[in-house]
């Protein structure tokens, strides 16, 4: 406490006044542009939360929002193999297991994919023709493509992107969201099991609910591998 009453207020107002006449940091973008080093590209970084889990949900929003498609997701697939499906390898170093892909209960794309995978895209073009090259019908186009090839080859997705004008990230985002779409040829057993089986998440939920109602503890960590109590 100051000995002179009100001095604190006078000092505070003085600071306000000084700041008022100081040059502003706000720049009237886009008329005025900040002086940024010519090679600055910003830097994407994936952050971890306080429990050591990656914060990224693989929700693809950043990839879909990026106007020049420099953002994308790639990383380790469920078999521990490194895979980058698009974009520069350094943008995303890893993929979270508990991602949209995990949620859909499938493995992630074939890591053996190379950008120049040899694929006859003729059938894709026919399918696109049948769907008026309409980006609003991507799901139907993907389903037809999968019916043709047995899975969704990445080269086919790229072709669809190229022809419809829909962003690759959007198409990939759609393809990785729906459980019935797959990036690897299924084994016969997988194909049979996938037909009208419930999603693994639903089956786990129903089992947990049943156990809980019957007075049995519904199990430890969730299928996602999320840790339970973390005290």
């Amino acid at each position: 406490m100051s000995l002179i009453p009100g001095l604190g207020i006078v000092r505070g107002m003085g600071l306000t006044l000084r700041r008022f006449f100081e040059p502003k940091a706000t720049i009237r973008y886009p008329e005025v542009r900040a002086d940024i080093p010519p090679k600055f590209r910003g830097r994407l970084q994936l952050l971890y939360d306080e429990y050591g889990t990656l914060k990224c949900e693989t929700c693809f929003q950043c990839a879909q929002a990026c106007p020049i498609e420099c953002i994308d997701m790639g990383g380790l697939d469920t078999k521990g193999r490194f895979h980058v499906h698009w974009g520069a390898a350094e943008t995303y170093g890893e993929r979270r297991e508990e991602s949209a892909l995990r949620r859909s209960g499938r493995t992630v794309p074939d890591p053996a994919y190379t950008p120049f995978e040899g694929l006859d895209v003729g059938p894709v073009d026919t399918i696109l023709e049948e769907h008026d090259h309409d980006p609003n019908r991507i799901l139907e186009i993907l389903e037809a493509t999968q019916a043709k090839y047995g899975y969704l080859p990445v080269a086919a997705l790229k072709r669809i992107s190229q022809v419809t004008g829909a962003w690759y990230a959007m198409i990939y985002g759609t393809a990785s969201y729906y459980r019935h779409l797959r990036f690897e040829p299924p084994t016969q057993a997988e194909q049979a099991a996938a037909m009208d089986a419930r999603r693994p998440a639903e089956a786990a939920f129903l089992a947990g609910l049943g156990a809980s109602l019957a007075g049995r503890a519904a199990g430890g960590a969730s299928p996602a591998g999320r840790s339970g109590g973390n005290a």
């Binding site: 949620r103 947990g208 609910l209 809980s212 519904a218 969730s222 996602a224």
Partner: peptide
């Protein structure tokens, strides 16, 4: 236990 089964499903989804 019941609330936790439900909440976890909601969080997973």
């Amino acid at each position: 236990d019941l609330a936790r089964v439900l909440t976890r499903y909601c969080a997973d989804e």
